[in-house]
Design a protein around this nucleic acid. Sequence first.
DNA 1: AAAGCATACAACCGCGTTTTC
DNA 2: CGAAAACGCGGTTGTATGCTT
Length: 339
Amino acid sequence: MGRSKCCDEEGLKKGPWTHEEDQKLLSFIDKHGCGSWRGLPAKAGLQRCGKSCRLRWINYLRPDIKRGKFSLQEERTIIHLHALLGNRWSAIATYLPSRTDNEIKNYWNSRLKKRLTKMGIDPMTHKPNGAAGSSKYVANLSHMAEWESARLEAEARLVRKSKIFFNNNNNSHNYNINPTTISQQLPYYQQLPCLDILKAWQTTTTKLPTIHDISHAILLNNSRNKNLESSIPSTLNSSENIFANNVPTTTKVGDDHQNFHNLSTINSCFEDDQLQTELPSFMQDFSGVFPEYTQNSTNGLQVDNIMGSFYGDFEDNKLINWNNFPNYLVNSPIGSPVF
DNA sequence: AAAGCATACAACCGCGTTTTC
DNA sequence: CGAAAACGCGGTTGTATGCTT
């Protein structure tokens, strides 16, 4: 029963790989491809266990690995994803295709975590130290993470399929979304940010998303869309917009001070000039939802300090126009298994 | 110049899950 | 269906390198 006896690991070499070993492994994989790690070392003439060979290939020798300094965009993606998914490095790595989970994990542990700590932010909860946590917020984030986890798994399966689909169907759209919207569509990868996280989250709660939730999802998906060639058609029908049964249709910005603080602290990890440039940009994308912002945004956002104000041009009595929000969701380029 | 400390990152280890027989 | 191997993931360790005193 079962498989044949596993390789005997006694006498196998451990520790850092030499250039010669790398060449042997590369040469073998070049000729025979990777996989069947168990038998690979003997065939390649290596005194290593298959597990060690696999790790060396995946984390170091693979040709599609991007090495070197992490960009600000990548840093931001990691921080936002970590806030959402926790220490699920392989899931986070799917949003940074050229980076390995090991590299992201190391980068987080050696730099980002310390940087957040220095700034008075708990790297695990992504909340300011000492601040009273909002259990409701944490619960919502947890819901989002669960759905996002499921979506990630499904998306991974669908990515390959979708690429073939789009290659073969460039001129024959047949998706279950608003045809009026379709006629105005840019290619999927050029559309407004995907908001499937919010869509998924919406299935778990009747509460309207906060500005924090929206901003978080927008930033996350903007960065993902820049990094991932994922073009899966949405299956969301326009009549199924997430706000169909929700009231009120507007929310006072001032109701969300706590969440503003959360977003503010996350984004305070970045240079102010970047924040000043990029945050207004995505707010402008959502001009229908944030009318007050676009009308009064000449001065950009104000970020004074770590706990600084993110309110910018928002005032307590300004309203978010939730009625316009479904339009953005319908335009979402990436499908979700839960819709 | 050298010792001690900090940092970065490659690699290992253990464990849960999946696959194969 | 169960057992065992293989795989994949996250936590941790070891070591090289850089910095400070």
